[in-house]
Design a protein around this nucleic acid. Structure first.
Length: 338
DNA sequence: CACACACCCTGTTTGC
DNA sequence: TGCAAACAGGGTGTGT
């Protein structure tokens, strides 16, 4: 469930269950779901079993679980999960029937729930898991969001984001871990991913400077996870619609003021989607309990081709874009010459 | 270095 | 009904 809100819904659902959980069994049903893992799957399984999961952390669309292996390791490890286009992590009982399309099965002993199965389900296998080394963050700030509650769901979570710059959960029972739990190490394979717009360490002036220095269309830039992370095709289209910016508007033609407006709309859209539990069109995009979010009812542009623009009534158009589509209002969102 | 594109996959939906 | 094509919210590697 690809974009930031959907991944955060999954992360928030997992955190209270996996904090302090001991891995008791791992089964790799499809090797392709380990494509991000360096080394054989035996190594993945052997090092996971007996170890303890510390928390659930997210940056952009990447999710990871700081991990203490049974055999001491020189540096902190993390179990990384990327959901790709169709990945899910579902909480199941230990004796549940295997989910269809389940690729990896983790059985854990959770301090809060007891024996639980984490089912990594992925239709297209663009997602994957991996056990990865971690590296310190370049800016020394927390690597991602690790609170026990859904980011943006209430004032507590907001406060946790603001306050949590250096806390790391110190308890292992998962019941009273620091609500502002952030860590300052990031999995190696996530280190090149930029901070997302909801991250307190997001450096907006710098991102805007880099954005305006690009020579490409603004939507391509929004989707570049090395510039800012968490935004995918849905929320790019929604943010551009909200800011009245054409997806192919050249980045170098944007003023700083318009770029600020655009990033503000990105945040509004992401937070609104979080508040509604993410966007779901079908059973493919669900929380850890298999339930759907409601943001699809709030979409103004994405998938709305032919329907009236909620602002001006002009039919939304859909255009081919990078093997996908862009959806926008041809009247509200024109390429501007400044 | 920055950019554009091909590619990795499978299941469901759509159209003939 | 049956079949093929179109479609799907991702990242990465490669070539320019």
């Amino acid at each position: 469930m690809p974009e930031l809100p959907e991944v955060e819904v999954v992360r928030a659902g997992l955190h209270p269950v996996v904090a302090g959980a001991v891995v008791t069994a791992v089964d790799v049903l499809d090797q392709r779901s380990l494509k991000r893992h360096r080394g054989p799957s035996d190594d993945f399984v052997d090092r996971l079993v007996g170890g303890t999961i510390d928390s659930a952390v997210r940056r952009g669309k990447f999710l990871w679980f700081p991990f203490e292996p049974a055999e001491p390791h020189e540096q902190p490890l993390a179990l990384v999960a990327h959901l790709g286009m169709s990945g899910q992590v579902l909480l199941r009982s230990r004796d549940a029937e295997p989910d269809r399309l389940m690729r990896i099965r983790l059985e854990v002993e959770s301090p809060s729930l007891g024996p639980v199965r984490l089912a990594f389900v992925d239709q297209r296998i663009f997602g994957s898991m991996a056990l990865d080394e971690t590296v310190p963050t370049l800016d020394g700030r927390a690597a991602g969001f690790a609170g026990p509650r859904l980011l943006g769901s209430d004032a507590d979570a907001e406060a946790a984001v603001e306050a949590g710059t250096d806390a790391r959960p110190t308890t292992t029972d998962g019941t009273d871990a620091d609500p502002a739990a952030w860590v300052r190490r990031v999995p190696q394979q996530v280190s090149h991913i930029a901070r997302d717009p909801l991250d307190p360490a997001f450096d907006e002036p710098r991102v805007i400077t880099r954005l305006l220095a690009r020579r490409t269309g603004v939507k391509r830039a929004l989707l570049d996870q090395g510039l800012l992370s968490g935004v995918g095709n849905i929320y790019a289209d929604e943010s551009l619609w909200a800011a009245r910016v054409h997806p192919e508007q050249p980045t170098e033609s944007l003023s700083r003021a318009r770029a600020r407006v655009l990033l503000a709309e990105v945040r509004v859209v992401l937070l609104k989607a979080l508040g509604e539990g993410g966007t779901s069109f079908d059973a493919q995009y669900v929380n850890v309990n298999g339930q759907s979010g409601y943001f699809s009812h709030s979409l103004a542009a994405y998938g709305q081709q032919g329907r009236p623009c909620p602002r001006c009534g002009t039919p939304i158009v859909r255009e081919a874009f990078m093997n996908r589509s862009s959806h926008f209002c041809p009247r509200c969102q024109r390429v501007r010459t400044r």
